[in-house]
């Protein structure tokens, strides 16, 4: 991956659009991985596991566990899988961690770049579509077994409601009405959410259900890390509503995690 920044001012960058990715490409700086066919099968790269999001009355709650696995062993205990995309949206990643984190960084820069040039944020629909394009660009990597499947949520300032999107490996974009989960423990998390989900819940209830779902997924799926009281590792939780992106502070998540663990045991 090249890291050379052009020294002059890109005054005549042959980029008509506001896209940061196109700007990178015009300088041949875009992130790219060139692999010969089948060569990635032998790679052991950290995999980010379970993330989920659910809609509630005023917005969306998004939670992710903290574990990354490499085959059957734990690669990292404290990675972050839920990120702010901009002031009014959040993105959660599952799949090959290295690719996913680069995708998030590019996505964040892209949204801010657009906002600064245009003087206005992209619509939520626009952000979701752009992320779909980024996932689609990863398709050749997906054939090599390096898959990235994000979840995206945000507060739609036009429709005045929280909205939630899921993706597939070919860049398909699906809007979800209730909840979504991705990663190895996604199936268990969804099964749990299906049994507790109610429309128009309060933020507190939604947050508790989301953390309980991660905890339940960790019970069944070895790759998902539940709340770890001994090491004080708790899931990352964020709430996106009309006041924007808000990270839930660790102490509050710890409190909810403890009460969930007591209830589930």
């Amino acid at each position: 991956m090249s890291l050379e920044v052009p020294s002059g001012l890109p005054l005549n960058a042959h980029v008509p659009a506001d896209s940061f990715y196109e700007l990178l490409r015009s300088h041949s700086l875009q992130p790219r991985w060139e692999l010969s066919e089948g060569s990635a099968q032998s790679l052991a790269t950290p995999e980010a596991t379970t993330v989920l999001a659910l809609r509630y009355g005023d917005g969306v709650v998004m939670v992710g566990d903290r574990r990354a696995t490499e085959g059957h062993s734990i690669a990292h205990r404290r990675i972050q899988k839920v990120y702010p995309a901009d002031d009014y949206s959040a993105v959660a990643i599952a799949g090959t961690a290295g690719l996913a984190m680069e995708m998030v960084k590019l996505f964040q820069t892209e949204l801010e770049h657009y906002e600064k040039l245009e003087g206005a944020r992209l619509s939520l629909e626009g952000k979701a579509n752009h992320l779909a394009r980024m996932v689609r660009q990863q398709l050749p990597m997906a054939f090599q077994g390096l898959v990235v499947v994000p979840i995206f949520c945000g507060f739609d300032e036009i429709a005045n409601e929280g909205r939630l999107y899921t993706y597939d490996v070919v860049g398909g974009r699906y809007e979800e009405e209730d909840f979504a989960a991705s990663g190895s423990g996604g199936r268990e998390a969804k099964a749990f959410l299906r049994s507790v989900y109610s429309e128009g819940a309060s933020a507190d209830d939604a947050l508790r259900n989301a953390i309980a779902a991660i905890t339940a997924a960790a019970e069944q799926d070895t790759a998902t890390g539940g709340p770890d009281l001994r090491r004080e590792i708790y899931p990352t939780a964020v709430v996106v509503n009309d006041s924007g992106y808000n990270a839930v502070d660790d102490a509050h998540v710890a409190e909810i995690s403890q009460s969930v663990l007591e209830e589930q045991s």
Binding site: V5, L11, A13, F20, L23, L29
Partner: peptide, 18 residues
């Protein structure tokens, strides 16, 4: 305006690369 756009591009490129 052209200079403003070029400045944002320059800054974002640098911030992303480093």
């Amino acid at each position: 305006e052209a200079l403003r756009v070029a400045g944002i591009r320059h800054a974002d490129l640098k911030g992303y690369s480093y």
